[in-house]
């Protein structure tokens, strides 16, 4: 179980780097120590040989940068809808990318992503794994919470 979780964590790291670089032109670095101050999150549920959910945690300024970079918008043009949409796309892409990296021969069903305009706190799941990243002082976190076989 522990080895599998480490592999999942490593693949998640690669996936989040790839998604943020290609789609949002943001270069992330792993964050040292405990990170707080997330303002919102997007989540997606998955179901296959294991099931659970992936949450992407975002600071306000990080998500604004994501929207500006992805859509080529000026600061004053950003809407709440853009923020929600980009956050959901981010978690959708990280999840799809992650499962592709883990095992292409296995099929996982992904839910429609959801957005929460606040951070709902750390996961209490036994098989939850959290990673935090930053870029120019702005933060992104990811929590993978797995139920069932890993």
């Amino acid at each position: 179980m522990k080895e599998n979780m480490e592999k999942i964590a490593e693949m998640t790291r690669l996936s989040i780097f790839e998604v943020f670089e290609k789609m949002f032109y943001i270069f992330l670095e792993p964050s040292d120590g405990k990170v707080d101050g997330y303002d919102m999150e997007a989540l997606i549920e998955f179901e296959g040989s294991a099931r659970g959910e992936i949450r992407i945690l975002l600071s306000r300024n990080m998500v604004r940068t994501m929207v500006q970079n992805m859509l080529n918008l000026e600061e004053g043009e950003i809407t709440r809808h853009n923020i929600e949409d980009c956050s959901k796309e981010a978690v959708n892409m990280v999840a799809g990318n992650l499962f592709g990296k883990l095992d292409n021969s296995e099929m996982f069903n992904l839910s429609i992503p959801a957005f929460k305009p606040e951070y709902s706190g750390p996961s209490s799941g036994e098989n939850a794994y959290r990673m935090d990243f930053d870029s120019d002082g702005e933060k992104v976190g990811v929590i993978i919470d797995i139920n069932g076989r890993v």
Binding site: E89, N92, F99, F108
Partner: peptide, 27 residues
């Protein structure tokens, strides 16, 4: 154009007439 990447899912799509795949994130 999708985040889906399993071989089985891609084959299902090809069987339904899909001609090509673009994986998100893309260049």
């Amino acid at each position: 154009i999708t985040t889906e990447s399993s071989d089985e899912r891609m084959q299902d799509a090809f069987n339904l007439g899909v001609k090509g795949f673009i994986r998100k994130p893309f260049l």
